Amino acid sequence: MDINTFQSLIARLTEEIAGVSLGSSLEAHLNAEHGPGSDLFEAIFDACKIGVKEGWMCNREGGGIRYGRVLKATEATHGFSVDVVEMENVAGPYHVHPNGEIDLIMPLTQGTCFDSNPAGWCVYEPGSGHRPTVTKGSALVLYLLPQGAIDFTPAAA
């Protein structure tokens, strides 16, 4: 596994979802078609574990979170950037998703949840925001960001 092979793997998914509205119907589709146990879910999970082990994923650290942008938003990924984080029983910094966010939750510890969601997909609509939180263990979380847009801002009072 290398960055080019990973990009090709991700492009299979981003081609399918390019232009689709981010919301609950996309989340339901991703979990039904590409949820835990599916070929694509397992291929991405395996690729992420390899990338972390080899050091080309999650190669930065701050606040107890290992993270890194793996792919910029380009035509090759149909306008989506790809970030991967490794978190264990921690809440990350608050941020807003101007164009939405698609998260793939890959628990490294059985029963781990991301924002109260188990293994699988979680989709945030454009304009939404959250403080990403992993509980009950550790997980890798892959973020697909349309146009790479993310705003780290203080939470609204």
Results as ranks from 00 to 15, higher is better:
H34L: 10
G35N: 11
G35K: 07
G37S: 11
S38F: 10
D39I: 12
D39Y: 06
F41T: 04
F41P: 06
F41Y: 15
F41G: 06
E42V: 05
E42C: 04
A43Q: 11
A43W: 00
I44F: 04
F45P: 01
F45C: 15
F45G: 13
A47M: 15
C48Y: 01
K49M: 12
K49G: 14
K49R: 15
G51W: 07
G51M: 05
G51L: 09
V52Y: 15
K53F: 10
K53H: 13
E54H: 09
E54D: 15
G55D: 12
G55L: 02
G55A: 07
G55N: 05
W56E: 05
W56T: 08
W56A: 09
W56D: 07
C58A: 13
C58I: 07
N59V: 04
N59L: 05
R60S: 14
R60F: 06
E61K: 01
E61L: 09
E61I: 02
G64N: 07
G64W: 02
I65V: 14
I65E: 05
R66P: 00
Y67I: 01
G68L: 08
R69G: 03
R69W: 08
V70N: 09
L71R: 06
K72D: 14
A73I: 02
A73T: 02
A73L: 05
E75T: 08
A76G: 03
T77G: 06
H78L: 01
G79N: 07
F80G: 08
F80N: 08
F80W: 10
F80L: 11
D83F: 11
D83M: 13
D83P: 00
D83G: 12
V84L: 09
V85S: 13
V85R: 05
V85Y: 12
V85L: 12
E86P: 00
